[in-house]
Each structure stands twice: as structure tokens, then as C-alpha cells.
């Protein structure tokens, strides 16, 4: 089965589609050795992300195992995650400093 999605880290709750996925079609991606599938509830453009789970309002969106933003509105599983429904959270630089 040919994959059309990439999960960058097992902690991620989005998958990046490496082909355009029409509504109703399957996104196929690998999670370790396992091949997983998910139905696209709307068209996901090339290079864009699909939600792996239901995301509540203000929920953290994780890619590369790291926070990439929070949702502006609830995003259902299988929906398109983009700049239209997530936003960047300001950093807390002071907490990232280490003792010299």
C-alpha cells in the first residue's frame, strides 16, 4: 500500500499529506512498523496537514513531537489543519535559559 501521509513523530496529532487527498479518500501513513489509515473529511491540499484526532478549541497541535500552535476553533478528526484554524503561541524564553 503506497503511503500518502507522513507522521513526523509518534507524539504528533497531525499527519502531513504528501499528495492531494480528495474528500472521502484515505490518508495512509506509517507509525513505526504499523501502517495506519484515516479518512479525509474534506480535501487536504498537497503538503498540508490532517487532524488525527478531534482537536478541541485551544488544543495543542503537535508535529515533529513539538508544539506548532493551538487551535482557534474545534477541528474534527480527518479535517484540514492550516493557518486558518491554528495560531502560534508566544514563547517563554526566560524558562528556556540554563544555568551557566
Amino acid at each position: 500500500m503506497e503511503i500518502n501521509g507522513l507522521l513526523m513523530d509518534e507524539k504528533d496529532n497531525v499527519v502531513t499529506c504528501v499528495a492531494k487527498v480528495p474528500a472521502g479518500e484515505q490518508v495512509i501513513y506509517r507509525k513505526g512498523e504499523e501502517v495506519c489509515t484515516l479518512t479525509a473529511e474534506e480535501e487536504i491540499p498537497y503538503c498540508h496537514k490532517i487532524a488525527l484526532t478531534d482537536l478541541a478549541l485551544g488544543e495543542e497541535v503537535i508535529k515533529y513531537g513539538e508544539l506548532i500552535g493551538k487551535t482557534r476553533e474545534p477541528v474534527k478528526k480527518g479535517r484540514w489543519v492550516s493557518h486558518n484554524n491554528i495560531y502560534s503561541v508566544p514563547r517563554d524564553y526566560e524558562s528556556e535559559m540554563v544555568t551557566v
Binding site: 502531513t16 503538503c47 500552535g69 491554528i86
Partner: peptide
Amino acid sequence: AGGLSTLDE
């Protein structure tokens, strides 16, 4: 447009 939604991503 290329799928990068936030500065963090």
C-alpha cells in the same frame, strides 16, 4: 499555501 501554518512549524 505550502502547508506551513505557523512560525513554529
